[in-house]
């Protein structure tokens, strides 16, 4: 009997019967569709929902960026973040860098915070941009992500008061540690085309870190891209003069440069981590940023 109990417990642990932070079965084979299939879904959505151009009232504006809220039973920090961005008149855009939810069944709680607004003006509801993270698709939750956001691979840009192109943000899905073949091709095409269109700044936005320079987390604590893909993406971004790479995943702040690209890993905004931070980026002729405690 004892033996049977142990076997059942082990099987439960390995197959994800125990709902927790980690999708144990997904650790061996992701339960959501692979990246190529998710990319197809994203493109299907993009065909009917064109990429957004956000008009800004002045060339210098602000972006709020948060990540890894891992919404579970509470959504305090994300609610605060959403309200802060909504109330800042010079902030037309916010970005969530992924791992919005923690585990299975947390999407409703996260969506409640995503649309939290104590104002009557709902104009900013669709300018909080999502990035898909590994937790967002654990337990086969790609269907949930898709239901709420439709796409995980897209771009959006900003337009100045006199109609000029300002800044481009390219968002891609890295929650499997590979862009796989179709998304890589898409990224190459978008970068090659868009880098010639005269944008002021081009920023790559995703969930997973490309490098792990910080010993405390880096190479030890988290998984990233396969090395072949690390080299390929780093070269692709550098070749196309991408200025910045924003990501999350590590839960700790990391700032470094490689080959002319500034890499920023934003630290977690998860409840009840204290202190939890989000990033405020000042977009202008030059980009500057700082981190605010929530």
């Amino acid at each position: 009997m004892k033996k049977i109990t142990y076997i059942i417990l082990t099987v439960c642990l390995l197959t994800g019967c125990t709902k927790g932070n980690f999708d144990w079965a997904g650790m061996w084979n992701g339960q959501s569709p692979y990246t190529n299939v998710r990319f197809d879904h994203s493109m299907e959505y993009n065909q009917t929902h064109p990429f957004k151009t956000i008009p800004v009232s002045q060339n210098n504006y602000r972006i709020y960026v948060c990540t890894d809220t891992h919404i579970d039973s509470t959504n305090r920090n994300l609610t605060k973040f959403v309200n802060l961005y909504h109330h800042d008149p010079n902030c037309p855009i916010a970005i969530h860098l992924g791992d919005m939810v923690n585990a299975d069944g947390n999407y409703p709680k996260m969506i409640e915070a995503w649309y939290a607004d104590d104002r009557t003006d709902k104009s900013k509801w669709d300018t909080l941009f999502p990035v898909v993270g590994n937790h967002d698709i654990y337990y086969g939750q790609w269907t949930e992500y898709r239901k709420y956001f439709g796409t995980a691979t897209y771009w959006f840009d900003t337009q100045g008061p006199s109609g000029e192109k300002l800044d481009l943000f390219i968002v891609f899905d890295s929650s499997n540690g590979t862009l796989q073949t179709k998304q890589m091709k898409w990224l190459k095409n978008v970068l090659q085309t868009k880098s010639k269109e005269g944008y002021r700044h081009i920023i790559a936005v995703t969930h997973t870190n490309l490098f792990f320079p910080y010993s405390a987390h880096g190479s030890g604590a988290n998984a990233g891209f396969a090395l072949e893909e690390t080299y390929e993406i780093a070269d692709l971004l550098a070749k196309n003069k991408i200025e910045m790479y924003w990501c999350g995943h590590e839960h700790a702040r990391e700032l470094y440069k490689f080959n002319g690209i500034e890499f920023i890993t934003v630290s977690t905004l998860q409840d009840p981590v204290s202190p939890a931070y989000y990033m405020v980026v000042e977009m202008g002729e030059n980009i500057s940023y700082h981190f605010e405690k929530i």
Partner: peptide, 15 residues
């Protein structure tokens, strides 16, 4: 055989 995303990401085939 090398998968990608095992441990802390979603696992899938890589090479």
């Amino acid at each position: 055989f090398k998968p990608t995303g095992m441990f802390h990401l979603n696992a899938s085939f890589y090479s």
